[in-house]
Design a protein around this nucleic acid. Sequence first.
RNA 1: AGAGAGGUGGCCGAGUGGUUUAAGGCGCAUGCCUGGAAAGCAUGUUUUCGGGAGACUGGAUCGAGGGUUCGAAUCCCUUCCUCUCUGCCA
Length: 422
Amino acid sequence: MLQLQKIREDKDLVINRLSVRGLDANILVNSVLELDQKRRETQVKLDDVLSKRNTISKEIGAFFKAGNVDEANRLKEETALINDNADKLRKSLSDIEKELNDILYQLPNLPHESVPNGKTSAENEIVMSKGDIPVLHKEAKPHWDLAKEYNLIDFELGVKITGAGFPVYKGKGAKLQRALINFFLDEAEKAGYKEIIPPYMVNEASGYGTGQLPDKEGQMYYVSEDDLYLIPTAEVPVTNIFRGEMLKKEDFPIKYTAYSPCFRREAGSYGKDVRGLNRLHQFEKVEVVQVQHPSKSYETLNEMVDYVKSLLEKLELPYRLLKLCGGDMGFTSALTYDFEVYSAAQERWLEVSSVSNFESYQSNRLKLRFKNENGKKELAHTLNGSALALPRILASILENFQVEDGIEVPKVLHPYLSFDKI
RNA sequence: AGAGAGGUGGCCGAGUGGUUUAAGGCGCAUGCCUGGAAAGCAUGUUUUCGGGAGACUGGAUCGAGGGUUCGAAUCCCUUCCUCUCUGCCA
């Protein structure tokens, strides 16, 4: 969440930056400042009352010790009024704090100054594109038909076992998936990321830490019996490794990678968007996460973007890089780049990666700090990116690499497979 | 899952209702001493929200949340976690 300190210092800047998201934050920001003022005033009053009570309590103790019971009892009566007053102030302080917190939770991150204005994905800025769009033969098919023809993925079987959006990968389909996971993890390790296998369920505090909560109905599956959430991305458990940590400035940059299945409810999706592998309730992903010094986080964001580019180029997939506009950016992000690959039979771009700098938005919730050059505690910056999400990569490989008598496999995966053509 | 034991500052560890303002030790920081260091001595050292230009100063904080009391690390309730034993299981 946003730092209250920053809102106090320059509320116009905050309102101004949030308008890039198409959000008029005037009322919210002003109530934050009002509540903050009220909170401090109330706390001063409460502290004062409690201070008096502490003094009197000590006096009572001293009187009892001295055997002066009458005087002690007289003072006891005095505290009744004080405690009454303290209760009221405590109640109103906690009400104010709750209200203040609720509003702070409603405020999204401030977009970086380079984020373009805009409401929808149509206004995202295409930064670059690379790779030739393949020319397919006349009988070319979308991946869901190929998956059936070559017996790679069984969507109906997944419906039988679980429900829509939970496909079953079979034979060479499963092996190709596994090869991609290994390829991505090996590349990440070469790029300096430490591999992690995180828990696939997280508690409520972790959900709040990275910003998935409060908003639970939207995307996460919830196991009520144990009060746990299935992770929608490895970002959640991996970033929460650092919840409450105090780092040293020499620790930066911290680079972690993790493969995990991801579970998303995706309420409200329909139509061609959910066809085949395009949008699933369970999918595989390799994620990269970095924790960085605030002065270097944008350098790191660029490094991560370059890293994802290199993966797509090694896989020989045509891609384009988008800088998201304010309206399309996630709640917690300050700047997000999306990668899309071209899936030649569907003739559409599919998002396969999202790389974001959250600046201190997550670390403020996580209480992820470090001792800076002056020995002061300061919030670290967190970043993450998909590297990469599997299903749409698989979809575009199947579609783009199909030839008349089968499906070829990107060369870079050959060492990971016992076959080089399906 | 059942029974028992436990959770106190950066770490160890004392503390069963009021000089605890959390003893003592280790570690760390600063100073004295020294040619320099060690030892020794002295001072400081949980975290966090406030007030104050500052020197200073108020509140909260002993796993977490409630309660009893004028007053709670200490008593009561709830809950989480760790350890030991038993059971179950890949």
